[in-house]
Computed example of a mutant assay.
Amino acid sequence: MKNKGLITTTIIFFIIVNTSYYWKGKLDFYAFPTFLILFILFLVLNIALIRQIYFAFKDKFKDKKRIVTIGLLITVLTLTFLKPFGFINFEKFEAKNILIAEREGVAGCMTTLKLKENNEFTAKSVCFGMTETKGNYKIKNDTIYFENIKLGRGEKEFYEFAVIKPLKFQNDIKHFELLSYKSKKDTIGHGLKVILNELK
């Protein structure tokens, strides 16, 4: 790659990685191939860096543009290695989490539900892909009702309401689970372990 094309590719790669917070939840089953492509591109940029350093030594660092390219590559690749999902935690700019519940399934699959202080919620499901459902919630008595639901890619339905109950087979009353139900006819529910609870 020419230096100009290499610089452009490096900058685009950096932007994509550091804005993943906003787009990774919309990929569903495209998430894995997308991250695989980004990983391959990361390796390609490392090879390009080694090549640029070789030519820099060869011309005794006389090419200033090449030195700038090397500096850019080292910065981007180092930041990506240290913070592969972006060095800015965009969630800090959102409303405070007042409840977090999660459940790990087979093959490393994970479901995480977060209730925000501003009455918004997010539900992320990671399993050979990633989907994110968003909406609002309201609390009436001991029940959490989900409203204005925006289903994630590939999702067909979401839960209608949820309740917090003590975990079975636990003597310590501080351990709870969030049981979510798709309708009033749903008698089984879907349980998530509560790891943060600051609900009033």
Score class of each variant (00 low, 15 high):
1 M>W: 00
5 G>L: 12
5 G>E: 14
7 I>C: 11
12 I>L: 14
12 I>V: 15
14 F>C: 11
16 I>Y: 06
17 V>N: 10
17 V>F: 06
19 T>C: 11
20 S>W: 12
21 Y>S: 06
21 Y>K: 03
21 Y>G: 03
23 W>V: 02
23 W>K: 01
23 W>P: 00
27 L>S: 03
27 L>Q: 04
27 L>C: 06
27 L>G: 03
31 A>L: 12
33 P>W: 11
34 T>L: 08
34 T>M: 12
36 L>A: 11
38 L>M: 15
39 F>I: 09
39 F>G: 10
42 F>E: 02
42 F>T: 01
44 V>F: 14
44 V>A: 12
47 I>W: 13
48 A>T: 09
48 A>D: 09
48 A>W: 01
49 L>V: 09
49 L>C: 05
51 R>W: 06
51 R>C: 09
53 I>Q: 06
54 Y>G: 08
55 F>A: 12
57 F>C: 13
57 F>G: 13
58 K>E: 11
59 D>V: 07
61 F>T: 12
63 D>V: 09
64 K>W: 12
64 K>L: 12
67 I>T: 09
68 V>K: 12
69 T>I: 13
69 T>Q: 02
70 I>W: 02
70 I>C: 01
71 G>Y: 06
71 G>F: 07
73 L>N: 01
73 L>P: 00
76 V>E: 01
80 T>H: 10
82 L>H: 07
83 K>I: 04
88 I>W: 14
89 N>A: 11
90 F>R: 01
92 K>P: 01
92 K>S: 11
93 F>A: 07
94 E>S: 08
94 E>M: 12
95 A>P: 05
96 K>N: 15
99 L>M: 08
100 I>V: 15
101 A>D: 11
101 A>S: 13
101 A>N: 07
102 E>H: 03
102 E>Q: 14
105 G>T: 05
105 G>F: 14
107 A>S: 15
108 G>P: 12
111 T>Q: 14
113 L>F: 14
114 K>P: 06
115 L>D: 01
116 K>P: 02
117 E>H: 14
117 E>M: 13
123 A>K: 04
124 K>Q: 14
126 V>M: 10
129 G>Y: 07
130 M>G: 02
130 M>P: 00
130 M>E: 04
133 T>K: 03
135 G>W: 09
137 Y>H: 02
137 Y>N: 00
137 Y>R: 00
139 I>N: 00
139 I>K: 01
139 I>M: 07
140 K>W: 04
140 K>C: 04
141 N>M: 03
142 D>F: 05
144 I>M: 01
145 Y>M: 11
151 L>D: 08
152 G>P: 10
153 R>G: 05
154 G>Y: 07
157 E>K: 15
163 V>D: 03
163 V>L: 04
163 V>N: 04
164 I>C: 07
167 L>E: 15
167 L>W: 04
168 K>M: 10
170 Q>K: 05
171 N>S: 08
171 N>T: 07
172 D>T: 04
173 I>K: 13
174 K>I: 07
174 K>E: 08
174 K>Q: 11
177 E>H: 13
178 L>S: 06
178 L>I: 04
180 S>H: 05
181 Y>D: 00
182 K>P: 00
185 K>W: 09
188 I>L: 10
188 I>C: 02
188 I>N: 05
189 G>H: 10
189 G>Y: 14
190 H>N: 13
191 G>I: 06
194 V>L: 09
196 L>P: 06
196 L>W: 05
197 N>Y: 02
197 N>F: 02
197 N>A: 03
198 E>P: 01
200 K>Q: 11
200 K>M: 05
